[in-house]
Amino acid sequence: MKANGFDYLKKITAVDYIQYLEVIYIIYNLSARKEEIVKVRLDAQDPGIDTVIHVFKAADWYERELSEMFGIKIIGRDAPRLLLEEWNGIDPPLRKSFAWGKDYRKTGGS
């Protein structure tokens, strides 16, 4: 992608579709002003994806956010510090298994 001029990473995010996880890369070509969206399907049980930080430095915080909020393992990066809330609970907050309103203090969350 980068060789074709898509040199600007706008966003990495993910969606939990319960049966599977989808990781979305929004990549932009600054000179041609074109946008491409790359979607990767991951297994919901033990999700892991290769890092892209050697291609886009912008991926750093997004990948940390993914691993914290979705529990997605980022392969190729040595355990980056958690980014937003140092959440070490059992359910990653943005997964659908995280129940809204449940008291996680009793179940061993941080």
Binding site: K10, K11, T13, A14, V15, D16, I24, I26, L94
Partner: peptide, 19 residues
Amino acid sequence: EGIIYMVPDKQKPYRLSIR
């Protein structure tokens, strides 16, 4: 530049991601 990536459900967002 701000981006909203939304997966809509019928009456509420199924997932909403903010850049």
